[in-house]
């Protein structure tokens, strides 16, 4: 049984490293084999938007290290994602990988595996979207997340001073291992507002009548009782979770694939009107 640590930070021996390694030590203690990949050590090119992975279902044709990263995830039973929040959200390497993950989204390649997320950050109040990219990434992969934790540590390697943070990281690694061993998807961190991704970001819909979790795409109702604001999601809303296998299948089947027919039908008009832009401010590349 293997736990794979994924680090989304360029800085070696920094807080993301320390927390990931402490958690992996915990995983080892609980009986797991462990492996560590620093995502910034690998070549992750941008998605080129050709859509061949969707339309031809051939996989991705870009030649870089992403297939290797997927293979490592495929070999693991649990993923420990440690990604810092420098400015409001995750580092760019994770977003780059998210865009490339679309090739996997409709296949459910890794569905059923387990994961935990750790986010070191510097200043309280400057991390509103820190869990956004981890939630999207793990949602696309179909992983069951059992911990999401943010760690207030700023300077390089400062986490070593923070005993509670170190203990928490170790516990996260141990509990991830136990979750895999017992196939127990119970969520163990503090709960947020969304019952799926547990984030606290809620979007007010344009009709100003309802709200939604923008990550999961589920709709709910804002409630205020005795001055306490809350959000209620009913069970039927949860079934519309964006990364649910059926919702995902329908998205690719009815929103993506038919666009080929639309593209072909509008091709000539697009070609004629597009002439105006093709020759304008032509770049040297």
């Amino acid at each position: 049984m293997k736990i794979l640590g994924l680090i989304g930070s360029y800085r070696k021996n920094g807080n993301s490293d320390i927390l990931a390694k402490e958690a992996l030590m915990g995983a080892e203690e609980a009986g797991a084999e462990v492996e560590l990949l620093r995502l910034t050590d690998y070549k992750i090119n941008p998605c080129q938007g050709f859509g061949l992975c969707l339309f031809r279902e051939e996989g991705c044709h870009i030649k870089d290290d992403v297939k290797f990263i997927w293979s490592r995830i495929g070999d693991a039973d649990g993923i420990l994602l440690s990604v810092p929040c420098y400015f409001l959200e995750s580092t760019a390497v994770l977003k780059q990988l998210i865009d490339r993950a679309w090739v996997l989204a409709h296949r459910g390649t890794f569905r059923g595996k387990y994961a935990s997320v750790m986010v070191p950050y510097a200043t309280r109040g400057w991390i509103p979207y820190a869990m956004l990219q981890p939630n999207i990434f793990l949602g696309i992969l179909g992983l069951k997340v059992i911990h999401r934790a943010a760690f207030n540590v700023q300077g390089l390697g400062e986490a070593v001073h923070d005993d509670p943070a170190i203990k928490k990281a170790r516990r996260i690694g141990m509990e991830l291992t136990r979750a895999v061993l017992h196939q127990d998807p119970t969520y163990r961190s503090e709960r947020g507002l969304c019952p799926i991704c547990q984030d606290r970001n809620i979007r007010i819909l344009k009709d100003h009548k309802g709200v939604e979790c923008p990550t999961c795409g589920i709709r709910g109702t804002l409630t205020v009782q005795d001055g306490i604001i809350d959000v209620a999601f009913d069970e039927s809303a949860v079934s519309t979770y964006r990364f649910d296998p059926v919702v995902g299948y329908n998205h690719f089947t009815y929103h993506i694939k038919p666009s080929r027919d639309y593209y072909l039908r509008t091709k000539e008009e697009r070609k004629a009107k597009g002439k105006l832009y093709r020759g304008y401010l032509k770049d040297e590349g």
Partner: peptide, 14 residues
């Protein structure tokens, strides 16, 4: 299930 790739927009389930 339904295969929609290459099908006409009007013909798929809707």
């Amino acid at each position: 299930k339904e295969e929609t790739l290459g099908k006409a927009i009007e013909e798929i389930t809707q």
